[in-house]
């Protein structure tokens, strides 16, 4: 599997570290239901078959986090962008 890094170009997946689901948003720790919200955030994950948005860290290249759209059934990658946008 090759991941198209916006800076480095297409690179082998072995250069990257996988973090996981990029669709989640960290809950507000000050909210009254923070404990329940964090339980869901940390433990409850969808396991989609098909297109998925996920974080990959390019540890062997530009050392930037990427948001990658990958099909979990075929590993086909539809796109990748720098987390936080370009600096």
């Amino acid at each position: 599997m090759r991941i198209p890094c916006p800076y480095c170009g297409a690179r082998d997946a072995s250069e990257f570290a996988y973090l996981g689901d990029a669709t989640l948003t960290r809950p507000d720790p000050a909210a009254p239901d923070a404990a329940d919200a964090f339980h869901d955030y940390v433990y409850l994950r969808d396991n989609p078959a098909g297109a998925h948005s996920e974080w990959w860290y390019h540890s062997g290249g530009c050392r930037r986090w990427l948001k990658v759209t990958r099909d979990t059934t075929s590993h086909a990658i539809a796109g990748a962008e720098l987390a936080g946008g370009a600096k």
Partner: peptide
């Protein structure tokens, strides 16, 4: 130029 792992060496 490129930054990459070569023979497991960055």
């Amino acid at each position: 130029a490129a930054t990459s792992n070569v023979a497991h060496i960055n």
